[in-house]
Amino acid sequence: MNSGAENTIAPVVALKGVTRSFEQGGVTIDVLRGVDLAIMPGEIVALLGPSGSGKSTMLQAIGLLEGGFGGHIGIAGTAAEKLDAAGRTALRRDHLGFVYQFHHLLPDFNALENVMMPQLVRGANDAEASARANDLLTALGLGARLDHRPSQLSGGEQQRVAVARGLANRPELVLADEPTGNLDEHTADKVLDEFLRLVRGEGSAALIATHNERLAAKMDRVVRLNEGKLG
């Protein structure tokens, strides 16, 4: 008899009818017009769309980075739209990781410290945070660069540190917004390959926004944002 256990796995993120509009010059601009999406544990999804299509807005919705969104945003089984600001902050801290096009590293801290920081904020002690940061950076080929500040690292190395930071708290879902868009093609390929390898090794899911079809093809599934809806 089929117990149905295989059907009990819940998505890491579930969007239903998500909307977002902006007012500009007295005109309402509908950026998201009823987005539906489910991402399962461990699944790596490419979010494709041209510049200005709303990819960043959609990531902001899932990342709980600002208000103004309509519809249902479920993160790890919790309805984010029902939470207050403190609840959304805790949900974001405990379940999500972020990697941006520009690394946004803290300039006064070295690579190891930058990756330790989100762990310390979450409550890890120095030894735990340092060991985890060391492991991630070494896995990304930066074992000899741990004590270098961002200004002493190349663009590709800086983005590798940002990748390690995004994975530091073992998030169930990593949100990446054009994570290699600021790199040359050769470096972008290497960093993305390392990013995907590390995400898969960690068992995290990921939603990666890109306009690059070739990079999107490296992922498990592709969804396309067009006129405010996914196709």
Score class of each variant (00 low, 15 high):
Ala131His: 15
Ser51Phe: 13
Thr138Leu: 01
Asp220Pro: 09
Leu175His: 08
Leu48Gly: 05
Gly17Thr: 10
Ile44Lys: 08
Gly228Phe: 05
Gly71Ile: 06
Glu157Gln: 13
Asn226Phe: 07
Val13Glu: 04
Ile9Met: 11
Phe195Trp: 11
Ala127Cys: 00
Asp184Thr: 06
Gly97Ser: 13
Ala176Glu: 08
Gly67Glu: 11
Leu47Tyr: 09
Ser151Arg: 15
Asn212Ser: 14
Glu194Val: 00
Glu128Trp: 02
Asn182Arg: 07
Ser53Phe: 09
Leu65Ser: 06
Leu175Ser: 08
Asp184Val: 07
Gly74Tyr: 01
Leu215Asn: 14
Val12Asn: 11
Gln158Leu: 04
Gly74Val: 07
Leu15Met: 10
Asp94Asn: 15
Thr57Glu: 00
Arg221Met: 02
Pro171Met: 03
Leu142Cys: 02
Gly49Pro: 05
Arg132Leu: 13
Leu15Arg: 08
Ala79Tyr: 10
Leu146Gln: 05
Gly54Leu: 04
Ser3Trp: 06
Glu157Met: 03
Gln158Arg: 15
Ala124Cys: 12
Pro118Leu: 03
Gln152Val: 08
Asn169Met: 06
Gly143Asp: 00
Glu172Leu: 11
Gly201Ala: 09
Val161Asn: 07
Gly42Arg: 12
Gly67Val: 01
Ala14Gly: 14
Leu37Pro: 08
Glu227His: 13
Leu37Ser: 05
Ile75Lys: 10
Met219Asn: 13
Ala164Met: 05
Leu96Val: 05
Val222Ala: 14
Met219Glu: 01
Ile39Val: 14
Asp108Ser: 14
Leu173Asp: 06
Arg160Ser: 07
Tyr100Trp: 15
Gly156Phe: 01
Gly68Lys: 01
Ala5Glu: 13
Gly67Thr: 10
Gly70Leu: 03
Leu173Tyr: 09
Leu120Arg: 08
Asn182His: 04
Phe98Ile: 03
Val13Arg: 05
Ala206Ile: 02
Gly63Leu: 03
Gly71Asp: 07
Phe195Leu: 15
Asp84Gly: 15
Leu207Lys: 04
Gln60Lys: 03
Leu83Pro: 14
Leu215His: 12
Ala164Gln: 00
Asp147Ser: 10
Gly203Glu: 05
Gly42Ile: 03
Gly63Ala: 04
Ala90Thr: 15
Met116Gly: 10
Gly143Arg: 00
Arg200Ile: 11
Asp147Gly: 01
Leu96Ala: 06
Glu185Trp: 00
Gly71Ala: 06
Val27Trp: 02
Leu15Tyr: 08
Lys55Gly: 06
Lys190Gln: 14
Met40Ile: 09
Ala124Met: 10
Ala206Gly: 10
Ala205His: 03
Arg33Ile: 13
Ala111Tyr: 03
Thr57Gln: 02
Gly34Glu: 07
Ala176Gly: 09
Pro179Glu: 11
Arg221Asp: 11
Glu194Leu: 11
Arg214Leu: 06
Glu66Val: 01
Ala124His: 08
Leu137Asp: 07
Lys229Phe: 05
Ala133Gln: 10
Gly155Trp: 04
His211Trp: 07
Leu215Lys: 06
Val115Gly: 12
Asp220Arg: 10
Arg145Val: 00
Ile75Arg: 01
Ser56Pro: 05
Ala85Tyr: 10
Lys229Ile: 15
Arg197Tyr: 02
Glu213Asn: 12
Asp108Met: 14
Phe195Asp: 09
Asp30Trp: 06
Leu48Pro: 07
